[in-house]
Amino acid sequence: MTEYKLVVVGAGGVGKSALTIQLIQNHFVDEYDPTIEDSYRKQVVIDGETCLLDILDTAGQEEYSAMRDQYMRTGEGFLCVFAINNTKSFEDIHHYREQIKRVKDSEDVPMVLVGNKCDLPSRTVDTKQAQDLARSYGIPFIETSAKTRQGVDDAFYTLVREIRKHKEKMSKDGKKKKKKSKTKCVIM
């Protein structure tokens, strides 16, 4: 069974824990209790493949930012979460993405942009803004509501699919490099 290491990042209060708990335990946590770091595991079937999701729910508070490099190193894919009623959390996505790329030393890291709290009427981040940002990053965008469960499975499952595509691409690139290195030079 394939294991996928997913990391949920975003500013404090955007609903990272609520999304994760909704996926794992099928219930909505409405009281806000700032996370330092929590880890969850769940076995699911995605596109006919049974897999184990190892999900790291991270601290959004700035005082825990020193811990970010460590979990970013171990993560295979990242859910970059903002709240649709919090423009600052949307603007912060850029910083999370840049930090992930720096730590992973790669421009090509599996990510999904997630606009959470889409059940709320007080939207300050337009869907088109988020779609445009995701398009500019070359990553999928999904709106979710941890409260109603809308888009929750889709967000995590899409990230797994992005990781699969990335692994497939990397193995193809690896095979191309191996083929090239088999060419021999004969000096007579």
Rank of each mutant, 00 (worst) to 15 (best):
E63G: 04
E63Q: 08
E63V: 03
Y64L: 03
Y64W: 01
Y64S: 01
Y64F: 05
Y64A: 02
Y64G: 03
Y64V: 02
Y64T: 04
S65D: 05
S65F: 07
S65Q: 11
A66I: 08
A66Q: 11
A66D: 11
A66K: 07
A66E: 07
A66M: 13
A66R: 08
M67C: 06
M67E: 03
M67L: 13
M67T: 06
M67P: 04
M67R: 15
M67D: 05
R68E: 03
R68M: 03
D69I: 00
D69Q: 07
D69G: 06
D69S: 09
Q70K: 14
Q70H: 11
Q70V: 08
Q70N: 15
Q70L: 05
Q70C: 11
Q70T: 12
Q70E: 10
Q70P: 09
Y71C: 13
Y71W: 07
Y71E: 08
Y71Q: 07
Y71F: 07
Y71K: 14
M72H: 05
M72I: 05
M72E: 04
M72T: 04
R73N: 10
R73M: 09
R73H: 10
R73E: 11
R73L: 08
R73G: 11
R73I: 06
T74S: 12
T74Y: 11
T74G: 12
T74F: 07
T74N: 14
T74V: 09
G75V: 09
G75E: 04
G75F: 08
G75M: 04
G75D: 02
G75Y: 10
G75A: 14
E76F: 11
E76A: 12
E76T: 14
E76Q: 11
E76W: 14
E76P: 03
G77T: 03
G77V: 13
G77I: 11
G77K: 00
G77Q: 00
G77N: 00
G77H: 00
G77C: 13
F78T: 02
F78Q: 00
F78M: 02
F78S: 01
L79E: 00
L79V: 08
C80S: 03
C80P: 00
C80E: 02
C80L: 13
C80V: 13
C80H: 05
C80A: 05
C80R: 01
C80Y: 08
V81M: 11
V81I: 06
V81A: 06
V81E: 04
V81R: 00
V81L: 10
V81H: 02
F82G: 15
F82W: 07
F82R: 00
F82H: 09
F82D: 02
F82A: 15
A83R: 05
A83S: 12
I84Y: 15
I84E: 15
I84V: 14
I84T: 15
I84F: 14
N86G: 13
N86A: 07
N86M: 03
N86T: 06
N86L: 02
N86S: 11
T87G: 13
K88D: 11
K88M: 09
K88A: 14
K88S: 14
K88E: 11
S89A: 08
S89R: 02
F90S: 04
F90G: 05
F90T: 09
F90W: 14
D92R: 10
I93G: 03
H95G: 09
H95C: 05
H95R: 14
H95L: 04
Y96V: 09
Y96T: 06
Y96W: 15
Y96I: 15
Y96S: 03
R97L: 15
R97Q: 10
R97F: 15
R97W: 15
R97P: 03
R97S: 09
E98V: 01
E98G: 03
E98I: 01
E98K: 04
E98L: 02
E98P: 01
E98W: 01
E98D: 08
E98N: 04
E98S: 05
Q99V: 11
Q99P: 00
Q99A: 11
Q99I: 12
Q99S: 11
I100T: 04
I100V: 06
I100C: 03
I100L: 09
K101D: 04
K101F: 06
K101N: 07
K101A: 11
K101V: 07
R102L: 11
R102N: 06
R102I: 04
R102T: 06
V103H: 09
V103R: 08
V103P: 02
V103T: 08
V103S: 05
V103G: 06
V103W: 15
K104G: 10
K104Y: 07
K104W: 14
K104R: 14
K104Q: 11
K104D: 03
D105R: 07
D105W: 04
S106Y: 12
S106T: 12
S106E: 13
S106D: 14
E107L: 11
E107V: 11
E107S: 12
E107G: 10
E107K: 07
E107Y: 09
E107C: 10
E107A: 13
E107W: 10
E107P: 06
D108R: 07
D108C: 08
D108I: 06
D108T: 08
D108W: 05
D108K: 06
D108P: 05
V109Q: 03
V109G: 02
V109C: 06
V109H: 02
V109D: 01
V109P: 04
P110V: 03
P110K: 01
P110G: 01
P110D: 01
P110T: 03
P110W: 00
P110Y: 01
M111K: 02
M111Q: 01
M111A: 02
M111S: 01
M111G: 01
M111D: 00
V112I: 09
V112Q: 01
V112E: 00
L113A: 04
L113V: 06
L113N: 01
L113F: 13
L113K: 00
L113M: 11
L113G: 01
V114E: 00
V114S: 01
V114L: 10
V114P: 00
V114C: 06
G115Y: 09
G115V: 12
G115W: 08
G115M: 14
G115Q: 07
G115C: 13
N116G: 09
N116V: 15
N116D: 05
N116Q: 14
N116E: 05
N116H: 14
N116L: 14
K117H: 15
K117C: 15
K117Y: 15
K117V: 15
C118S: 10
C118E: 10
C118N: 08
C118V: 12
C118L: 09
C118I: 10
C118A: 10
C118D: 11
D119L: 03
D119E: 12
D119A: 04
D119M: 03
D119P: 01
D119T: 06
L120W: 10
L120A: 14
L120S: 13
L120C: 11
L120Q: 13
P121Y: 09
P121V: 11
P121L: 11
P121T: 13
P121R: 09
P121M: 08
P121F: 10
P121D: 13
S122P: 10
S122R: 07
S122Y: 09
S122I: 08
S122D: 13
S122Q: 09
S122W: 08
R123H: 12
R123W: 08
R123K: 12
R123D: 15
R123A: 14
R123F: 09
R123E: 15
R123C: 13
R123Y: 11
R123G: 14
R123P: 12
T124E: 13
T124V: 10
T124F: 09
T124D: 13
T124G: 12
T124Q: 12
T124L: 10
V125A: 12
V125P: 10
V125H: 11
V125N: 12
V125D: 12
D126Y: 08
D126F: 08
D126H: 08
